[in-house]
Design a protein around this nucleic acid. Structure first.
Lengths: 208, 208
DNA sequence: TGTACATCAGTGAACGCGCGTTCACTGATGTAC
DNA sequence: TGTACATCAGTGAACGCGCGTTCACTGATGTAC
């Protein structure tokens, strides 16, 4: 049965997916502050107690949403990395652009991914591990580029990767969530700016 | 009368400041989600209705906290800019380090500054204007450096400034709020890393 | 220096609200025979 | 093919809770004379 069919009677069909959809919509509109289980249920057209048959509690639903977001993000990054065929430096560029693009295309998912509330302070959660997996793609590209001698090796791959990650993460954050929010809007509107910034980043890394 | 003296009777002395202190403490511990006016009043040792004599409502207190944070941030940035005496490139470096340092020294204030909830989507709020004033320091330094020909001029000062801002903002965000949170901790612990990343940034900008 | 009085800055009871969660229930579905 | 029954996935009432905000109040303070 398709995930978004209307309910056909007493039973819903695929309430779990409907709750995830409604939850994402609610996070988009109101942020995590305005996220309530009852409102999610309302939007899914179901009583407020029904979600408990699919998620243990409110936190479990939020965590499921974050994991879903990381899944999509990881897919986007892998695809970008695979498409770049002209060497590790271009792969770094492609990963950076894909990072910012994902943030602009799916601002609510991007924001959700980095909410500190989703991570315990003690140990790495599944949500956290999902994020670090994508980072490894960048580290690999940097390591390869330094091995080939095409980017500076003044600092090790850890530092250079962190610097590149900082730049794209900062750019994405400023555009989506931060002070540039109003100027930003869609990916199409800011693509030239993003290209230029990442160009500066990549040129700065390149060995003279 | 000092701002933090214990109350001497029926009247508090400086409840407004005490509420700001308690509010900051509460934001630190629980984030903006867990921020309630009643808890702030409780921590200030005052009835839950008392804050209404000093702040119109909950939002007004949160906004006051954000403005206070931006004030301290702006002061730190100006001081860093003034201290750097060996030309615009070193000023860029100093501003970057001060940016990340502020975030690590005052993580709760830093986080608060960039919460989207504090900004209307329509017009620039006072909170927003406070943030952009500090950005101008960076743009000035980049413009001056490009004028002297000591950093690349491939892209205009807007792009180069945005790139530099993105890097320091991203680094600060990742260290304070993001996936590197657990490794980070205090400024002392990460200073070498921050220095190295900003060094890579500045060297990348430098004209070959 | 005293006194009357306005004003300021607190108090505590009360309001309505929506929340997360629990519970006994019931209708729909699937399976064994 | 029909029937009994277990199980699944909903419902709706109810719980206790803390919230933001309002209100009439009152104690403390400052000022005019």
């Amino acid at each position: 049965m398709a995930s978004t069919t209307k309910r056909d009677g007493y039973h819903h069909g695929d309430l779990r997916q409907a709750l995830l959809d409604a939850g994402m919509e609610l996070v988009t509109e109101r942020g995590l502050e305005g996220f309530t289980l009852r409102e999610v249920a309302r939007r899914a057209g179901v009583s407020h107690a029904a979600p408990y048959h699919h998620f243990e509690d409110r936190d479990a639903l939020v965590t499921a949403l974050a994991l879903d977001a990381f899944g999509r993000f990881g897919t986007a990054m892998e695809r970008a990395g695979r498409r770049a065929r002209s060497g590790p430096v271009e792969r770094i560029r492609a990963l950076g652009i894909a990072y910012v693009r994902f943030a602009l295309d799916e601002p609510e998912r991007f924001t959700l991914m980095f909410r500190a509330e989703l991570r315990s302070s003690e140990e790495a959660t599944p949500v956290e591990r999902a994020g670090l997996a994508s980072y490894q793609l960048l580290i690999d590209a940097v390591t390869e580029a330094q091995g080939e001698g095409v980017i500076a090796v003044g600092h090790g791959p850890q530092i250079v990767s962190l610097m590149a990650w900082s730049t794209v993460h900062g750019l994405a954050t400023l555009l989506v969530d931060g002070p540039m929010r109003r100027q930003a809007g869609t990916w199409r509107a800011v693509q030239p700016t993003v290209d230029a910034v990442i160009d500066d980043l990549v040129e700065g890394l390149r060995r003279p």
